[in-house]
């Protein structure tokens, strides 16, 4: 009994940072994009914090909620795309890396992507960036967002098969 209790104590619980410090938020906005606004350098604090928006389940779960709340679904569906392009097919018009996606959400892109700089905080844009990158699951991830509590329309994040053309029977 005691041994089990000790073993459980040894487990490291994933930290949830519920509120970033204002100076950290400022620093997180400091991406260094390439001249064409695709790809670039991550803010140093992003890596210093241990890249929480890439591998912290809480942050990815928050991103998933924002994806629903901020009308991303209206254009991108649950990742499969509609009037906007798919986010799960491994093809990115403006780059697949975190800086590109962060810039896409913050500043918008030509051909229809609106800017969310005035609608989301920097922290929220990073949470959303992290979640968008888990949707396609074309690379192994150590963290996954929370489970779906709505209509199941595709394989769960991080459980999806590789992004190749798959002929699945329609949902009945």
């Amino acid at each position: 009994m005691l041994l089990i209790a000790l073993a459980l104590l040894a487990c490291k619980r994933e930290a949830r940072e519920l509120r970033t410090d204002p100076p950290a938020t400022d620093a997180l906005n400091g991406v260094v994009p390439m001249a064409n606004r695709i790809n670039g350098g991550l803010p140093r604090i992003f890596i210093a914090q241990g890249s929480p928006y890439e591998n912290n389940a809480y942050q990815l779960g928050q991103g998933k909620r924002l994806y629903d709340w901020f009308n991303c679904k209206g254009c991108h569906a649950n990742g499969g795309g509609a009037s906007g392009p798919a986010l799960t097919d491994g093809r990115w018009r403006y780059g697949p890396d975190p800086v590109s996606i962060f810039l896409t959400i913050r500043d918008g892109r030509p051909h229809g992507m609106p800017a969310f700089a005035n609608r989301l905080t920097t922290e929220q844009i990073w949470q959303l960036t992290g979640y968008v990158r888990t949707m396609g699951a074309y690379s192994a991830q150590t963290a996954a967002p929370s489970r779906n509590d709505e209509m199941q329309s595709r394989p769960a994040e991080n459980r999806a098969p590789a992004a190749t053309e798959i002929r699945m029977p329609p949902s009945r």
């Binding site: 679904k73 569906a77 649950n78 990742g79 499969g80 795309g81 509609a82 009037s83 392009p85 798919a86 986010l87 799960t88 097919d89 093809r91 018009r93 209509m151 329309s153 595709r154 394989p155 999806a160 098969p161 992004a163 798959i166 699945m168 329609p170 949902s171």
Partner: peptide, 12 residues
């Protein structure tokens, strides 16, 4: 469009 049919809700 760039549609991924693995998502049943894609293209509305």
């Amino acid at each position: 469009k760039e549609i991924d049919i693995r998502d049943a809700t894609a293209a509305r």
